[in-house]
């Protein structure tokens, strides 16, 4: 509920800002988006995910943590990307998207070491 309220308030304030200081509007808007994103992650998403983690069975814990990390990263990158696209910084947006995907793939590949070991042990059956 508080998130809806903040969004509505911000919308009204940004409209005022647009009318009174149109030059500063884009800078204020960008700062606001980052602050709001920080607020959502720190005070809503992380406490909620910490609560979720406590009910997850131990064998699944590493994967669930990884999954939550990926979700937060994808969520943040999607918002920043849209912001960059809004200001027509297309190259920066695609770099952002590429970096996010690379980080997620690297982290997962690292985590899946056991699977690759099994995979290669099966390949060993050919010898």
């Amino acid at each position: 509920m508080i998130v809806y309220l903040i969004i509505i308030l911000a919308f009204i304030l940004l409209q005022f800002m647009k009318e009174s200081y149109p030059r500063l509007h884009s800078v204020i808007y960008t700062i606001y988006i980052f602050l709001f994103l920080y607020y959502i992650i720190v005070s809503i998403l992380i406490p909620y995910f910490q609560e979720v983690i406590t009910i997850v069975p131990t064998p699944l814990l590493p994967v669930v943590k990884l999954l939550l990390f990926s979700v937060i990263l994808l969520f943040v990158s999607q918002i920043v990307e849209e912001l960059l696209l809004e200001y027509e910084y297309t190259s920066l947006a695609s770099m952002m998207s590429f970096t996010t995907k690379a980080i997620i793939i690297l982290v997962w590949v690292n985590h899946m070491k056991q699977f690759y070991e099994k995979f290669f042990s099966i390949m060993g059956l050919f010898t």
């Binding site: 999954l67 969520f75 699977f115």
Partner: peptide, 27 residues
């Protein structure tokens, strides 16, 4: 979990599918 995530972040459908297949292979 993946259906929920796909619904939340629809733009990363392909990546999520790949991760899901990885998980199935793993578990």
């Amino acid at each position: 979990i993946f259906i929920c995530i796909e619904w939340l972040i629809p733009s990363s459908k392909k990546l999520l599918k790949l991760l899901f297949i990885y998980l199935i292979c793993f578990y």
